[in-house]
């Protein structure tokens, strides 16, 4: 029988993984990021003291982006994962799409914080104020970073958009 936390995690993990994949641009790192995030939420969920989490989905999303940013600040984050997670050897199905390749290339040119702002604003569809609160930035800083990220990625995203137009709703 699943615990309440496991039910929550099963429901939220697909969305967390989408954000993680865009932030990391790579499957293994995204999987690692999601598991680290779930571990943090698990500890908070089961702690003895204090009130329960008010909004677990928002808490998990915030934990994900903060974990990503913390890891990027550490020196080890410049290393690429390669053989440490061998359980699913083989080609990365996520890399099979030209759209994804273009997107990864566009996002890779951004600073981690700019990338995070972009993901929160346009994948998670959060307002400027919500992004500012989750990242500990001012709203002005979020707007600036969002605008800068869009400007830098626009050429690649425009090309990708043209390619992907047939897939868009």
């Amino acid at each position: 029988m699943r615990t309440e936390f496991e039910e929550f995690a099963l429901a939220r993990t697909p969305q967390l993984y989408r954000s993680a994949w865009l932030l990391c641009g790579e499957r293994h790192q995204a999987e690692d990021l999601v598991q680290e995030t779930l571990a943090k939420v698990f500890v908070r969920w089961n702690r003895r003291f204090g009130a329960p989490i008010d909004n677990p989905a928002a808490y998990a999303q915030t934990a994900l982006v903060r974990t990503f940013l913390s890891a990027r600040r550490r020196r080890s984050s410049t290393e690429l994962a390669y053989a440490d997670v061998p359980e699913r050897a083989g080609p990365d199905p996520a890399a099979a799409s030209d759209l994804r390749l273009a997107l990864v290339a566009a996002l890779a040119g951004l600073a981690p914080l700019d990338r995070t702002v972009l993901v929160l604003r346009y994948l998670e569809d959060l307002s400027v104020g919500e992004v500012a609160e989750r990242l500990g930035l001012s709203e002005g800083a979020v707007r600036n970073r969002s605008m800068r990220a869009l400007q830098r990625t626009r050429p690649l995203l425009d090309a990708s958009y043209a390619t992907a137009r047939k897939d868009l709703p």
């Binding site: 936390f5 496991e6 995690a9 099963l10 993990t13 697909p14 993984y17 989408r18 994949w21 865009l22 499957r27 995204a30 999987e31 999601v34 598991q35 680290e36 995030t37 779930l38 571990a39 943090k40 939420v41 698990f42 500890v43 089961n46 359980e87 699913r88 199905p93 996520a94 799409s97 759209l99 994804r100 997107l103 972009l118 993901v119 346009y122 994948l123 569809d125 869009l150 990625t153 995203l157 990708s160 958009y161 992907a164 897939d167 868009l168 709703p169």
Partner: peptide, 30 residues
């Protein structure tokens, strides 16, 4: 941009059960 991010990640197919199991195991260790 929103549409692109959505389309690009819509059909990602991670092993959800394995990720949750891994997260719970790490959480217990923490």
């Amino acid at each position: 941009t929103s549409s692109l991010l959505d389309v690009a990640t819509r059909d990602l197919d991670p092993d959800i059960d394995a990720l949750v199991a891994g997260g719970v195991a790490r959480g217990r260790a923490r």
